[in-house]
């Protein structure tokens, strides 16, 4: 019995196909030129076609030859990690390194679920102090330390 179960190969193929379609869609606006004088669209279009073909091959193979299911993903750690990075981006310039890192570390530590509030506070403070020491005083990188007033 042929039963389509979307698994690792299937979704990899879909991912490649999506990238290829978006890429080709955008690349249609660039001039192709000729093979002797390639335009900015030439190489991208070749890559897009190859990637699309590979994606299609993966999808076809998954449907015909079967597929392995994707292992369970827990979204929480990933989301909190990404959130901590975004928070760093949003706060580093207005709040400065110290406060920004305290927030970043606190959110990142929540992703692991294993630290208590006290440990998170201590870790955040320690990393903030350490980073100011390393990046500001030792490496002399141009980072704002405190909120700009």
């Amino acid at each position: 019995m042929l039963k389509i179960k979307a698994g690792k190969d299937f979704w990899s193929g879909i991912m490649f196909l999506c990238f290829a379609i978006v890429e080709l869609y955008i690349a249609r606006g660039y001039s192709m030129g000729s093979s002797g004088e390639m335009g900015p669209g030439y190489f991208p279009v070749v890559l897009g076609i190859v990637l699309g073909a590979l994606g299609a091959l993966l999808v076809a193979r998954a449907i015909i030859a079967g597929d392995e299911p994707v292992a369970g993903a827990s979204i929480r750690p990933l989301l909190l990690l990404v959130a901590s990075v975004v928070v760093f981006g949003v706060t580093i310039e207005p709040l400065g390194l110290v406060l920004s890192l305290v927030l970043t570390v606190a959110i990142a530590a929540l992703a692991g679920r294993q630290s208590g509030p006290l440990e998170i506070a201590l870790l955040a403070a320690a990393l903030a102090v350490l980073s100011v020491g390393i990046f500001h005083f030792a490496l002399l990188l141009p980072l704002p330390i405190w909120p700009a007033l």
């Binding site: 990075v85 390194l97 990142a108 294993q114 630290s115 990393l127």
Partner: peptide, 15 residues
């Protein structure tokens, strides 16, 4: 423990 290590990696990556 890893729970102390990984926030440091995040900080390094961001900075």
């Amino acid at each position: 423990p890893y729970r102390l290590l990984y926030p440091s990696i995040v900080v390094f990556c961001c900075i």
